[in-house]
Write a protein that binds this DNA or RNA. Structure first.
Length: 556
RNA sequence: UGGGGCGUGGCCAAGUGGUUAAGGCACCGGACUUUGACUCCGGUACUCGUAGGUUCGAAUCCUACCGCCCCAGCCA
C-alpha cells in the first residue's frame, strides 16, 4: 500500500517510552551489528528499520557496527556491500564502527576479569571442553585449570596474545558456573587462538580473537548504546551479556531486548542457505533478482520505501511466524502504482493487421503516463497498420466473461481505437500466426454509440516497437517452508525464472534507464536489469505482476 | 524428561481485568474504470492453545496440561 503506516508502538518502543518517562534515559542509542560474512537480506531489513527507525523517531542515534570477531568467515567485500545496502534503504549511521576497533580495550577488560578471579586460561582442547560441559539435563564439570593463580593466568593470557600457543590449545574462559541450567553460563569461552588469518581490519595484528558473547556487550557499552536489540536466539545469552558488563569496570549497561526474526514464505533466509545458493551457483549471485537479499530486491526493482513499508507492516513481536509473500508484494505494488509511469509491452507477440488502416502511415497518439497523476505527463505512441498484441489476449471463441479480443468481436486498443477481429490466419499446423482486424475511426477518445466494447488490450506498433528480453520471476521455492521435510535444495522452484526473448515494447521504452520503474499495463511492474542491459539491448525484470482477479494467462 | 521463549480469525498484529476483541494482508460480493489494475463501498470467519480456578466481570490474574521454537561452536 502507499502512504505511511503510522509507526506502531511495538513492545520495544513501549519499553523505550517508559525508559524515557522514568528518566532512565534522555536520548536513545541503538546499533545495527551485522557480521560481514554475507549479504544483507530482508530479515536484516527488519532489524535495520527497527534500529534506525527508533533513532529517527526518538531523540537518538544509530550506529552501524560490524561484528567482525571471526576473520575466518568475514570479508571486506561484505562490509562494503552491507554499507551500500543500509544506505540504499535510506539510512545513515551516526558512527561507523567495527568490533575490531575495540580489540585492545577488550583485551584490557579480559585482564581485568583475570585479576578479579573471574576468568582463567583453560588448556582443555575443544573435545574435552565439550565433555566437561555436561548436557542439557546434566551439569558440567569444572575444568582442571579453573583454579590457576591469577599470576599464572595473566602470564598465560599474555603469551596467548604473543602467539606462543597453537590454535585450539587454550582458551580464555569466564569463571561462572559449570552447574548452571543455562549452558551459556558454564564457563563460556571468551577468547580463542587463531593463527595465520588476515583480518580485514586488523590484518595480522592479532592471533587471539574475542567471542561474540564477550565482545557484543562491551562494544555496546563503549558506544553508549541504550537498547541493544537482537533476535530471539540470543535470549538465553542475555544473562551472559549482563554478567560481562557487571564484572568489568565500565559504567554503561545497555539493555538487551530480543524480538523474533522474519520468516517469509517460499524463500530461504538463513545466511548459510543463501551462501550455499550463491556458491553452488543455483542463482546468479547475491544480487540475483530471486534472492531475498537487499541486493537482489534492489536489482529486482523493489524500492527502499516499499521495503521499509513492509517492515513496518509486519510489526515487531516475540512470536515467531511466517509472513506471506503477498505482504511484501503488496508493499511494492502500492508504491509503484503511485509513482510508476505506464507503458505498453507485448510479452508474447501476435501480429495484427488492421486491414482498413492506411499502410505506410503512422499516427501519433498522446497517452497519459499515469491515470491518476497528470504531473507524470504524457508520451507519444505511434499507431501503424501492423501491430502486435499479446497472444493471450485473443481467442477464437470465448464466453462473455472473457474481456479480450474474440473472432468477430470488438476490443479497445489501449490509448487508441476500437478494433474488430475479422479473421484468424493460421499456418499449416493450425497455429494462429496473424489476425486481420478493422478499426473504427470514430472511437478515439470516446466509446462507440449503441454497442459496448468488452475490454481493453495493450499493443505495440510492429514497425515502431523495440525488441526486448523480459525476465519473469516466480517464487524461489516451491514449498512455503523450504527444507521442512529434507534438503531445501529439493524445494527450489525450477520455474523461478522465465526468460522471454521476443518481446516488443513501445518506442518510449528504448530510452529506459536503470533505476526507473514502469508499469507495463495489464502485466505488472518492470525495470531495466542493472547488470545485463546494455545500449541496444533491453532486458527488463518483472518486479511484480499486477494483482489479477482473473488469472493471468490461464482462466476459464 | 534442564533452561529460556512463544501460542488472539488463512497470514501478520493491537489488546496491559470492565460495553458488540483494533488494524493491515488474504478472501467473497458490489460500484467505478480506455489497465480483469488502482480507488471506493459492503461482507464472511475467532472456543483469544486446552482445562480448571479467582472475580460482579478474564484474551488480560492463578494453577495444571498441550503444542511449537531456541540452547550442549574455541560461530554470530
Amino acid at each position: 500500500m502507499n502512504g505511511e503506516i503510522n509507526t506502531p508502538k511495538n513492545f520495544i518502543r513501549q519499553i523505550i517510552d517508559s525508559d524515557l518517562q522514568s528518566g532512565s534515559h534522555s536520548t536513545i542509542h541503538t546499533r545495527f551489528p551485522p557480521e560481514p560474512n554475507g549479504y544483507l537480506h530482508i530479515g536484516h531489513a527488519k532489524s535495520i528499520v527497527l534500529n534506525f527507525g527508533i533513532a529517527q523517531d526518538y531523540p537518538g542515534s544509530c550506529n552501524l557496527r560490524f561484528d567482525d570477531t571471526n576473520p575466518a568467515k568475514e570479508e571486506e567485500e561484505f562490509v562494503e556491500a552491507i554499507k551500500e545496502d543500509v544506505r540504499w534503504l535510506g539510512y545513515e549511521w551516526a558512527e561507523l564502527r567495527f568490533a575490531s576497533n575495540y580489540f585492545e580495550q577488550l583485551y584490557g577488560f579480559a585482564v581485568e576479569l583475570i585479576n578479579a578471579g573471574k576468568a582463567f586460561v583453560c588448556d582443555l582442547n575443544p573435545e574435552q571442553v565439550r565433555e566437561y560441559r555436561g548436557t542439557l539435563t546434566e551439569p558440567g564439570r569444572e575444568s582442571p585449570f579453573r583454579n590457576r593463580t591469577i599470576e599464572e593466568n595473566l602470564d598465560l593470557f599474555k603469551r596467548m596474545r604473543a602467539g606462543e600457543f597453537a590454535d585450539g590449545s587454550r582458551t580464555l574462559r569466564a569463571r561462572i558456573d559449570m552447574a548452571s541450567p543455562n549452558i551459556n553460563l558454564r564457563d563460556p569461552a571468551l577468547y580463542r587462538i587463531r593463527h595465520g588469518l588476515i583480518h580485514h581490519q586488523t590484518g595480522a595484528e592479532w592471533c587471539i580473537y574475542p567471542m561474540y558473547d564477550y565482545t557484543h556487550p562491551i562494544s555496546d557499552a563503549i558506544e553508549g548504546i541504550t537498547h541493544s536489540l537482537c533476535t530471539l536466539e540470543f535470549e538465553d545469552h542475555r544473562p551472559l551479556y549482563d554478567w560481562v558488563l557487571d564484572n568489568i569496570s565500565i559504567d554503561c549497561h545497555p539493555r538487551q531486548i530480543e524480538f523474533s526474526r522474519l520468516n517469509l514464505e517460499y524463500t530461504v533466509m538463513s545466511k548459510r542457505r543463501l551462501t550455499q545458493l550463491v556458491q553452488e551457483k543455483r542463482v546468479s549471485g547475491w544480487s540475483d533478482p530471486r534472492m531475498p537479499t537487499i541486493a537482489g530486491l534492489r536489482r529486482r526493482g523493489y524500492t527502499p520505501e516499499s521495503i521499509r513499508h513492509f517492515c513496518e507492516a509486519i510489526g515487531v513481536t516475540k512470536s515467531e511466524g511466517t509472513v506471506e509473500m503477498g505482504v511484501l508484494e503488496n508493499s511494492i505494488r502500492g508504491h509503484l502504482d503511485a509513482i510508476a509511469p505506464r507503458r505498453m509491452a507485448v510479452l508474447d507477440p501476435l501480429k495484427v493487421v488492421i486491414s482498413n488502416y492506411p499502410a505506410d502511415q503512422g499516427e501519433v497518439l498522446q497517452a497519459g503516463n499515469h491515470p491518476k497523476d497528470d504531473t507524470l505527463g504524457t508520451r507519444e505512441l505511434v499507431l501503424t497498420r501492423e501491430i502486435y498484441i499479446d497472444r493471450a489476449d485473443f481467442r477464437e471463441e470465448a464466453n462473455k466473461k472473457y474481456k479480450r479480443l474474440v473472432l468477430g468481436g470488438e476490443v479497445r486498443l489501449r490509448n487508441a481505437y476500437v478494433v474488430r477481429c475479422d479473421e484468424a490466419v493460421k499456418d499449416a499446423s493450425g497455429r494462429i500466426i496473424e489476425l486481420r482486424c478493422t478499426y473504427d475511426p470514430d472511437t478515439l477518445g470516446h466509446n462507440p454509440e449503441g454497442r459496448k466494447v468488452r475490454g481493453v488490450i495493450h499493443w505495440v506498433s510492429a514497425t515502431q516497437g523495440h525488441k526486448a528480453e523480459v525476465r519473469l520471476y516466480d517464487r524461489l521455492c516451491k514449498s512455503a517452508e523450504p527444507g521442512k521435510g529434507g534438503d531445501f535444495l529439493d524445494d527450489l522452484n525450477p520455474e523461478s525464472l522465465q526468460v522471454l526473448r521476443d518481446c516488443i515494447v513501445e518506442p518510449e521504452l528504448a530510452r529506459a534507464a536503470v533505476g526507473e520503474r514502469y508499469q507495463f499495463e495489464r502485466e505488472g511492474y518492470f525495470c531495466l536489469d542493472s547488470e545485463d542491459s546494455a545500449p541496444g539491448r533491453l532486458v527488463f525484470n518483472r518486479i511484480v505482476s499486477l494483482r489479477d482477479s482473473w488469472g493471468k494467462g490461464g482462466d476459464e
